[in-house]
Computed example of a mutant assay.
Amino acid sequence: MTWNESWTTVAACKESQDALFVKGAEQNRAKQMCRSCPVKVECLAEALDNDIEWGIWGGMTERERRALLRRRPNVTSWRSLLETARASEDGADGRVAV
């Protein structure tokens, strides 16, 4: 699978982006939309590389992304890391481990 530069045009949330900016228990429902999204990894890289603080991005909440950033403080390009991880995971179970 190759990196999709125009990922926003095929995102599962492209018609309902407001649903991804919720709080509390509603976040779990919002994350459901991301599960089948074909560009979840691109979306997550966008949020991490640009320090986006609000909303569900790539299936992760603000808190989950902050925790990930704390665990991996030396990552300079999440896109590069996730792109490489995706390439090595393709053919396995299709998930990208970070």
Rank of each mutant, 00 (worst) to 15 (best):
C37G: 01
P38S: 08
P38M: 06
P38D: 03
V39T: 06
K40N: 13
K40G: 13
E42M: 05
C43M: 03
L44W: 05
L44H: 06
L44R: 08
A45H: 01
A45P: 06
E46L: 11
A47T: 06
A47L: 05
D49K: 04
D49L: 01
D49Q: 03
N50C: 07
N50H: 09
I52Q: 06
I52S: 03
I52E: 05
I52D: 00
E53W: 13
G55L: 14
I56R: 04
I56L: 10
I56N: 02
I56D: 02
I56K: 02
W57L: 10
G59K: 09
G59D: 04
M60N: 04
M60L: 14
M60D: 03
M60P: 01
M60K: 11
M60T: 06
T61I: 13
T61W: 03
T61G: 04
E62P: 03
E62I: 11
R63E: 02
R63F: 01
R63D: 01
E64M: 05
E64L: 03
E64W: 01
E64S: 03
E64Y: 01
R65T: 07
R65S: 07
R65G: 01
R65I: 08
R66T: 08
R66C: 04
A67S: 13
A67N: 14
A67D: 13
L68R: 15
L68F: 12
L69F: 08
L69Q: 15
R70P: 08
R70H: 15
R70G: 08
R70Y: 13
R70L: 09
R70C: 07
R71F: 09
R71N: 15
R71Q: 15
R71C: 09
R71I: 05
R72N: 15
R72C: 10
R72A: 12
P73N: 09
P73C: 05
P73E: 03
P73V: 01
N74H: 15
N74W: 10
N74D: 12
N74S: 14
T76Q: 14
S77T: 00
S77Q: 09
W78M: 02
W78P: 04
W78C: 02
R79D: 00
R79L: 02
R79I: 00
S80V: 05
L81S: 08
L81N: 09
L81H: 10
L81Q: 09
L82G: 02
L82E: 00
E83I: 01
E83V: 02
T84W: 10
T84A: 14
T84G: 09
A85E: 08
A85N: 11
A85Y: 09
A85K: 15
R86D: 01
R86V: 00
A87P: 02
S88N: 10
S88G: 03
S88R: 15
E89L: 12
D90Q: 08
